[in-house]
Amino acid sequence: MALLEIRDLHVSFHTYAGEVQAVRGVNLTLEKGEALAIVGESGSGKSVTAQAIMRLIPSPPGKIKSGEILFDGKNLLKLTEKEMFQVRGSEIGMIFQDPMTSLNPTMTVGKQIMEGLIWHQRISPSEARQRAVEMLRLVGIPSPETRINNYPHEFSGGMRQRAMIAIALACNPKILIADEPTTALDVTIQAQIIELLKELQKKTDTAVILITHDLGVVAEMAQRVAVMYGGKVVETGTVEEIFYRPRHPYTWGLLASMPRLDLDRKQELKPIPGSPPDLFDPPKGCPFADRCPYTMYICNDEMPEVSEVSQTHRVSCWLEHPEAPSVSHEPIVRISSK
């Protein structure tokens, strides 16, 4: 049985302008110790899916309309708020996009790590403090015995992100959700944070859900990839399948927009033309139909079924239908072996 299974998840936000259907029937699984990357453009539903797992959708205006989120056999959507409070931090940890707005500016970093330890593990403040020092050391913050008394504004951006990772991992959760963990960090610090996450995952055997739009990060860290567009998962597969044998035109477009370092000649980036669908009034057919160069009449009228390319590779595209025209597509990128 999978550690986490999302079944037909629907999440909407009710606004003055109407209902935004942010997530529309997402199905995903996560195995123990696995790193799953969820990729896609802004507004594709990645972060909303993660917030739904943690039951952090603000209500109002948000609402989880239907679906199941099974964690260790328990449906998280059926738990009371008190029961869910026990799951957050203890069994599922989360690193948010912006550590400066996620950390409490009025509390020292040490106290913020200790808070979860005291609550979930029922240990004394002195034991929690010692554990907090160990966590700061684990995530590579120098002089942790001194830094534990610092406030978030006294940390650099990279150190704040490391502190967020320490808070998320303090209680040894089974799942760590990393929502754009390298956003707003410079390239050198980004590489350090990803290397740190990889190292910590090996040490703790924690399953990781990595939400990102950076395909370089995906190639570096993940074993499996889910591609989201218009609130739906349009393709899932191993990293090798998504990078070398992608089957959905949207995945082709994402990969074609990446710069390639293995080419000697000058290369122009190829952005995907058009704009994402309006989720106030989402299309009844394939959400990518308006931007896809291979659109057929049926693409606008009906959402394609999920086709199984292999045991690990699934795609939702009408080009997989036996009567669809043949479209050849060459591998776009090279990825280094991990």
Rank of each mutant, 00 (worst) to 15 (best):
A163N: 01
A163M: 01
I165S: 09
I167V: 15
L169T: 09
A170I: 13
A170M: 08
A170Q: 05
I175T: 01
I175A: 00
I177S: 01
D179H: 11
P181R: 08
P181S: 12
T182S: 12
T183R: 13
T183H: 14
D186A: 07
D186P: 12
T188A: 05
I189C: 07
Q190K: 08
A191R: 05
A191F: 09
I193D: 10
I194S: 07
I194Q: 06
I194W: 08
E195N: 15
L196T: 11
L200H: 03
L200P: 05
K202A: 12
K203L: 14
D205L: 02
T206M: 00
A207L: 04
A207Y: 01
V208G: 08
I209F: 02
I211N: 06
I211Q: 13
T212S: 14
T212K: 11
H213N: 10
H213C: 10
L215E: 07
G216V: 11
V218E: 14
A219M: 04
A219P: 02
M221L: 15
A222R: 03
A222C: 02
Q223V: 07
R224H: 15
R224V: 11
V225H: 10
V225D: 10
V227T: 07
V227M: 12
V227A: 13
M228V: 04
M228E: 02
M228R: 00
Y229D: 04
G230A: 06
G231W: 05
E235V: 04
E235W: 03
T236L: 13
T236M: 12
V239Y: 01
E240T: 15
E240W: 14
E240M: 06
E241D: 10
F243R: 02
Y244C: 09
P246N: 09
R247K: 14
R247H: 14
R247G: 06
Y250I: 05
Y250A: 03
G253C: 10
G253F: 06
A256S: 11
S257Q: 09
S257D: 13
R260W: 03
D262P: 07
L263C: 09
D264C: 07
D264P: 11
D264R: 11
D264Y: 12
R265I: 13
K266I: 10
E268N: 12
E268D: 14
E268L: 15
E268Y: 09
L269T: 08
L269K: 04
I272V: 15
I272N: 10
P273E: 15
P273R: 15
S275C: 10
S275G: 03
P277W: 09
P277C: 01
L279T: 04
L279Q: 06
F280V: 03
F280I: 03
P282K: 06
K284W: 04
C286M: 02
P287H: 02
P287Y: 01
F288Y: 08
D290C: 06
R291I: 01
P293S: 04
T295P: 04
T295S: 15
Y297Q: 09
Y297M: 14
C299L: 02
N300E: 12
